[in-house]
Amino acid sequence: MPVFRKPESIINTAGYCGGCGHGVIQRLIAESIEELGLQDHVIGCVDIACSFWSQDALNFEFIAGPHGRCAAVATGIKKVRPDATVYVHAGDGCSYVIGLSETIYAAIRDVPITMVVVNNGIFGMTGGQLNLATTLIGDKTLSSKAGRDPKTMGHPVDMLKTIANCDVAFAARGALYDVKHIDETKRYIKKGFQNQVENRGFSIIEVLSPCPTNWKLSPVDAMAKIKNETEKVFPVGVYVDRGGKD
């Protein structure tokens, strides 16, 4: 009978809130790395927001640099340590707002790294402000208390479509609201690492992830919101799979 084990790369608890998706994503990253046998040569790149906790939890070397610059920092690392498995675990504020340029240019350069973006539609670490790229229309945040109004704050943007304009190896979006979607997200993340092993180019996996604390919902209701609202704006699935082309 299969035994459900904790990946050995997880060596510590992390500081995530109850019901947060970051811990699940961190685990999927650890599982993917171990299943591909890569855990002895990994450099992780986290942002100085919620994903930062991952560097205390996982038994890898880590770098945490300026907020939003993860894709550029990881580019510098991969260029001088091309044999290492280099990945980014960062939020949607880092990857799509303050660091959108860094993310897009990592895609344009087609740097063979694996970038995992946590789309929870809010600035979590700073207490729950609007995310210009991902907060849904009407959602109330600390900086949009009457709800996001597209007249003044614009619309959320499907950044994977933007990234799909670049010639990248892989771009996909998963979600965490049920086991089926967690399994699918895991396949995407593992594919992102497999691409790196084969030096295929830039892989980005966005994950629709709950932030019950700042959404002010129970963990169960937060999952329901993703299924009923978020996924309608940000459809899951594969956006780019370049396959064998190098």
Partner: peptide
């Protein structure tokens, strides 16, 4: 070695930050 023309100064320095952390 590695030469990168950055998309701006900040990104150039962030790439340098990563490479410097690796001992280059």
């Amino acid at each position: 070695g590695v030469f990168i023309q950055g998309e701006n100064e900040i990104a150039s320095m962030s790439m340098l930050f990563g490479a410097a952390a690796c001992g280059a």
